[in-house]
Amino acid sequence: MKFRIYRYNPETDSEAVMQEYILEDITPGMMLRDALLRIKEEQDETLSFRHSCGEGVCGSDAININGHNGLGCITPVSELKEPVDIRPLPGRPVVRDLVVDMSQFYHHYRSVKPYLTVYEPEPEVEYLQSPEDRDKLDGLYECILCGCCTTACPSFWWNPDKFRGPAALLQAARFIEDSRDQATAERLEDLEGPYRMFRCHTIMNCADACPKGLNPTEAIGRIKQRMLKDQS
């Protein structure tokens, strides 16, 4: 099977190249991460990429696969068209090979204050939350911060410094929707203005890219509805 992998090491390379690798003996069920590991182990130790859990929960190995963002560890190579083009996530500065600088992504995450905020004294036991209220967090809390969505979003490409991006907005929704959280008004107010959230033009690349099947566009829609409800 033929792979073309984006290679760039700032210490030695003046520009990036797509390097070709051939991998024999593709085993059934082999994931793309397994293929990359075999290439690194058997052919080229200098190939750098992030990865860890190998089962799609840690979010380390987000890469661009044949033009589509995804996680290497849960992408079966049998489903990929040859040659398989592998690039770093788009729109982010490349540190080396498939490793990108995610600091702006994390900055946006932090800036939505992604923590439960309660102003009243805490009870000795758990806050009560009905199963229906808890259900509202499904589809929001499962985010693994891999960055597939945000780096697939054209609005983010245009305004990476000002637009929070789908991942951070999904987190904002996760706390706005949490019946325990008491900072809803501040959270909504913080997303006002033309850029932070309203740059979302429901292009839906985020939902298409999310390897966990989450839908940030829909979450952003829920935030907008809450804003309207609060104003009326």
Binding site: Y115, E122, D133, R134, L137, F175, D178
Partner: peptide, 8 residues
């Protein structure tokens, strides 16, 4: 209290 979304 820290926010863990336990099932209910």
């Amino acid at each position: 209290h820290a926010g863990v979304p336990f099932s209910r």
